[in-house]
Design a protein around this nucleic acid. Sequence first.
DNA 1: CACTGGATTAGCT
DNA 2: GCTAATCCAGTGC
Length: 182
Amino acid sequence: MPEVTERARDLVGRLLHGHGVVARITEVEAYGGIEDPASHAFVRTPRSEIMYGPPWRLYVYRIHGHHAANVVTGPTEQAAAVLIRAGEILEGIEVARERRGPVADHALARGPGNLTKALGITSLDLGTDLLDPEPVFLGERVDRPTLVAGPRVGVRRNADVPWRFWAEDDPTVSAYRRHPRA
DNA sequence: CACTGGATTAGCT
DNA sequence: GCTAATCCAGTGC
């Protein structure tokens, strides 16, 4: 297993701060950069350039009108990253509710697009150093849940690689959907 | 410049 | 389970 899967597993149970809201990360996916056809960094382009740089920086991309947040994990030139797919809101829940509109609390940050919306993360946060106390940064570990692994959601290539990791029986984890053409 | 295809989501059957 | 909305990065000409 590549190092990025270890980084991914380590992120579950840690805090992610986003513009006044704090979430406990409950679901992530590992992307293996230059070795992983499912990764945006499989091809080096202006968009994926950030992932070739130093670790612990934020990679934000837009998809279907939503934002998705990733932690660049390194090593440099490997272009590995971890997609943050879901979390449980622990602080700033009123702000999160306002950003998300009428949904159940356990669904406020369920799914990558919903999580960035609840945490106010946009392309403006691209490149943020996640170890500094900026508007977006990684906090401490608050628990060590039992982890479950499975295939990544919605990817067409490498669709069977089990690099999605989530906290067992956690209601904030998103549903699995296989790519229609995988 | 035109075309393709998503690391998605909500809403409907 | 299925589909539309949606919009931009990447690609090729």
